[in-house]
Amino acid sequence: MALPGSRGIGRRLVIAVPFFWLLLLFVVPFLIVLKISLSQDVIAQPPYTPLLDLSQGWAGLKDFFSQLNFDNYGYVLDWNNEFLNAYGSSLIIAGVSTLLLLLVGYPIAYGMARAPRSIQPTLVMMVILPFWTSFLIRVYAWIGILSQDGLLNQALTALGIIDTPLEILNTDLAVYIGIVYSYLPFMVLPLYSALEKMDGTLLEAAEDLGCPPMKAFWLVTFPLSLPGVAAGALLCFIPAVGEFVIPDLLGGSDTLMIGKSLWTEFTVNRSWTASSAVAVLLLIVLVVPIVIYQNIQARQLEAGK
């Protein structure tokens, strides 16, 4: 795999393409947000100071850096403000959702990988079919399902299972349902691709050596699908932490998530600087699982898989 390095300029150009996009679409915006997070609110346009004035040359640059401060971070990290709770609650909601996604997604992916080859493309198609309608509309649809007089309560009442309608909408449960529903394809697809390329004779070998199928699943199939588990979990966990639409539409007023806090800070309190600080801290929180994931991947590359 590893081609000898320094294969000339063509090779470097190829590598440069993703780095260029990363620079343009991630590093530059991030630096802007970082800069704003170190500024102060003012009533002006744009609503923060200092502004970087390069026409002043070196002095302007020095002036700019001397005015930067960490006040916004102090504000965000203050226990009296809700941000720390929101971070914690977001991590918990995202973590629990990821676990639920795994529990729901794994059997689906496993079933898909075990289905006859000829229908597997159709199954993959069906998993990504929801993407064909707007995410927002699909989340709104859940309001219609989960509300007091929604489809679910109507059905359960009609079947005589419940007398009084269940209160699901505007609770954390609704948020979990929304996240699991919306993120399921991101969990199923990596799991499916890991399970699908697994060699079936490994299971036969395990059985041949005296291992019943259920146990063989835990000893062979599951460990070999761990890369898919890691990829799916991260693909779900990271965006779920910063999720805004689902808690806003389905969650209650007491559902605390950092995406919602950021939104409030930005639109209601009109503080660009504090919301930027929230975003930067969120990124730092999320870098941890990404680094863990990259470690796993690197180890796998090393293992020649």
């Binding site: 060699d199 004779t201 070998a205 395990a206």
Partner: peptide, 14 residues
């Protein structure tokens, strides 16, 4: 009480 040596070896990679 029969064991098989597979043509592809089928060793557990992990």
């Amino acid at each position: 009480p029969v064991n098989m040596m597979f043509q592809s070896y089928a060793l557990f990679p992990h």
